[in-house]
Design a protein around this nucleic acid. Structure first.
Lengths: 158, 158
DNA sequence: TATTGTTATACTCTATAACTATA
DNA sequence: TATAGTTATAGAGTATAACAATA
């Protein structure tokens, strides 16, 4: 009949946003660690996956899919291109855009990166043992797709 | 008998870490927006909640609970103290530590912040309609508590 | 010698404005 | 005029090392 230990942390541990931050920090550290030996960061990996799945994608499209602002994607693509993992090709009919596609070396590294990711994913799966992963993913997608409240420019004290 | 649309985004959308990042971004933008008018950021809010729930907490303990490194907590507490929302009191028996506690004004602002958070949480709840929130929270806690893979110091190309 | 809070600092991420070359 | 990519830059957030005071 113990009435559940009175709200630890003042209830903060029941806040989705708070737990989201902690989980994200841990998951990213783990993914960063397994990808490190390949010289890739999580964002690099996601770019390779995306371009590998849809060759010819424009930088704009990659940025939108990954929610990385266009200016910030430039140096990421620069570095991947400098390592000959992908190339900025021409798009016929529009000389402004670049069609991204993996090189043979990029494809090979992607395979190794996917194997490294599998190690990470196994740890995630182990942590989620007995829980509903599909529900988790659906929850995350729904939250990710919320329209966030309009940002108020002011209202702060001073 | 349609075999489920072939892995969109190359399967990236099935990665927990990736969806975690997107959800975290959206949730934090929303929380930041509702707290903005009070002059608080999510981290400030969590400090107020924690100290409000457990007065006398040391900075070290707050940092551990929120996973904010001690050096980075200093300016956060500085600003809250400058706004007379909390005070760094003395800890008897240890003159190194500071016992944090809310001022009356801090308590009042916390109440308003909790109301603002409720607005945010209602949007989250709406987004999660029909899904299992408890399962989500448990998944997040389990992931947050994983021991991340040991970080390899090297292995990158050049 | 170890710990708490602090300072200084660096590195990464994220964000905005403005430029260019195209369209 | 609008769009894709780019440049430059500013601002958070996060990280480590080292110091003072205290234990």
């Amino acid at each position: 009949m113990k009435p559940v230990p009175k709200t630890p942390m003042g209830g903060l541990d029941q806040h989705v946003g708070f737990q989201l931050r902690l989980a994200q920090m841990t998951a990213f550290k783990d993914l960063t660690a397994v990808l490190g030996p390949l010289g890739l960061k999580p964002t690099d990996f996601s770019v390779l996956m995306l371009v590998g799945a849809t060759p010819g994608l424009k930088q704009q499209a990659v940025g939108e899919a990954l929610r990385v602002l266009r200016p910030n994607l430039v140096s990421i693509v620069d570095q991947l291109e400098a390592r000959d993992l992908l190339v900025r090709g021409a798009v016929e009919g529009d000389r402004r855009s670049h069609a991204l596609s993996l090189t043979a070396e990029g494809e090979r590294l992607l395979v190794r990166a996917l194997e490294a990711h599998a190690v990470h994913d196994r740890r995630i799966a182990q942590a989620l043992e007995g829980l509903d992963r599909d529900n988790l993913l659906e929850c995350l997608k729904r939250i990710a797709d919320m329209e966030p409240a309009a940002v108020e420019s002011e209202g702060a004290p001073a």
